[in-house]
Design a protein around this nucleic acid. Structure first.
Lengths: 338, 338
DNA sequence: CTGAAAGCGCTTACAG
DNA sequence: CTGAAAGCGCTTACAG
């Protein structure tokens, strides 16, 4: 390459890094050679040499790519990154700590300028180590205990509270809760919201109908079956995330039960196909895309100014009232009485 | 690090690469030092030095991460890779050629041993270049024209044919088709299946009701509205992928139309929440997870033996008959007459 | 303004 | 069995 242009590799490097000092004609010569050879510098070598140089790549650690909530987040991050000439590389660790560690190692040593992560739990040591090593980090969805870190999430407690309150105002008093994995901070926050609402309306907290296992489809289906099989089953079920909701729906449909007449259901997480569900699902909507966008913004700021104070962005949820909680039956009643 | 163990960096390197030649005691010394310092080799330097050494990382180029079909594929790839001590790094190019190029550059120069890609179109030059450069490549979902490449896909034409035939047997003769982006090979294959079925049953091909734009939700909603607004609207609509289906459903529901009485719908792509849709969706199921698994298997084989003959794996689709095409109304009729 | 040289952190023939 | 040395492809002070 340098031969082709008849200059030294040093000069080529200068041209590539648009060093103003290079003479115009030399620059042209080099540029032509670059064109002709379709040359592009070896990024691995660049990285090895210049540790400070930014790679314009962000690492994204996602706990579960099958969860549509994260898909929205990813889109938000990616679009913002792309608009800032950066790219995003995703590692999906499926909520497995070993896999998380593997992806961290890979992304760390390969290229990334920083990470956006949803820690597998509140005391995630791998993420904490990353922070100690000085990597720019932004957490999404879940924070880290005893560690200062930028965070973008939603007010989970408030979101859950609103959902339960909505159910209570509709007349439900025995409300089951299929929670997610209790090692995940958001699960606990949603649980707190549930309890807060029940207490506020002087309703008993029956541990028998507060059940949790994993945060997936299967758990949703299984635990809903358990709830429905109880001698005194709940009249309404609150599901802790969209996968659990779908599992619950599967169980309910397979038993030929009518929603919301036989059992009402309200889910945490709204999805773009909520309105196509049977019946349209009432749900607590998290602004996933916005979470992604904001977290990427924070990361870029952090990369530029590693000393700026830590920021916590708590976004609001929105209760999307549709037909799965009894609003429909009320409407029907109204129509009947006309 | 080498100092700590009192040996040369060369010896450390040998231990790290489990070179049998190292004396046992030396090895122990080094291992202890590694433990103590929690040392791990710099992957960037490793890569720079040993171009032949595999990184155990596969690059995955996905056209649209919002499409649940690809999510299944990703899971299949990832689990297989993980079982083979490899990791997957995903680049989501959103069906944008520029983004695709960007991610190729990134993944290429960073680390990957090979790529699994869904080419943005049949003559995707970037992918072709990658092949020319000698990268191990496996294509999924879509092949490459005039280029030998490993491929895992589904028999799209057959799948579409089955869907249309099912509709015809149910009595539909005017069947609308909301196709995806016509630059994507699968769109064309599905179109061929549609035409094949219509011809086989001597039904006219009316270009007015064969409409396509992009492969996304919005196009599905918009084109379905167009179809429904026709003076002579179709009695059934075939949607070319799951996003289009959802868009179509949105339009149909928002008009208060009854499926399948007012209009039947059958979609390409099954999703895990198909049974929760209103009504449960009849769909052509692609084995996404299996596509992923097989493609990863092929890639690993290709990496090990770059000269093995090119393989094309065509998997079968499965028609999941549920309630959105009129099967339900038939059942209802049956019940009525009893 | 440009080149020669050092060095980023490894691996691997080559000596010994 | 182990170390010294070369070299992977860059970048960047340092000379000139």
């Amino acid at each position: 390459m340098a031969d082709m242009a008849g200059v030294s590799v040093a000069t080529v490097s200068r041209v590539l890094n648009s060093d103003e000092v290079v003479k115009y004609e030399t620059k042209i010569k080099v540029m032509n050679a670059i064109k002709k050879l379709d040359y592009s510098p070896n990024r691995v070598a660049q990285r090895l040499r210049a540790t400070k140089k930014s790679s314009k790549i962000f690492g994204l650690l996602i706990p579960d790519i099958q969860n549509p909530f994260y898909v929205d987040v990813i889109r938000g991050i990616e679009n913002y990154a792309y608009a800032n000439n950066s790219a995003v590389v995703i590692g999906n660790f499926s909520q497995e700590v070993k896999k998380e560690k593997l992806y961290i190692d890979i992304l760390k040593s390969e290229a990334v300028d920083g990470f956006i992560v949803a820690p597998s739990n509140e005391k995630d040591v791998y993420i904490k180590d990353l922070i100690k090593e000085g990597f720019p980090i932004v957490c999404i969805d879940r924070g880290l205990k005893d560690t200062e870190v930028d965070l973008v999430k939603v007010d989970n407690q408030r979101g859950a509270f609103n959902a339960i309150e909505h159910l209570i105002k509709l007349g439900h008093t025995r409300i089951g809760f299929v929670t997610g994995n209790k090692l995940i901070p958001t699960t606990l926050e949603r649980l707190a919201g549930y309890e807060e609402a029940m207490k506020k309306y002087n309703l008993p907290l029956d541990p028998e109908i507060i059940v949790g296992k994993k945060s997936d489809y299967e758990s949703g289906a299984e635990l809903t079956a358990y709830l429905l099989d109880l001698p005194n089953p709940p009249t309404a079920i609150f599901t802790g995330n969209n996968l659990l909701t779908l599992g619950a729906l599967e169980t309910i449909h397979s038993r030929g039960l009518n929603i919301p007449v036989d059992v009402a259901i309200i889910g945490f997480d709204d999805v773009y196909w909520s309105t196509s569900l049977n019946p349209p699902l009432t749900a607590v909507k998290q602004p996933g895309y916005e979470i992604g966008r904001r977290s990427c913004e924070l990361l870029i700021q952090r990369i530029q100014a590693s000393d700026r104070p830590v920021a916590s962005i708590i976004l609001k949820t929105e209760l999307m009232i549709r037909k799965s909680c009894g609003a429909q039956s009320k409407e029907v009643k109204k129509t009947d009485s006309e």
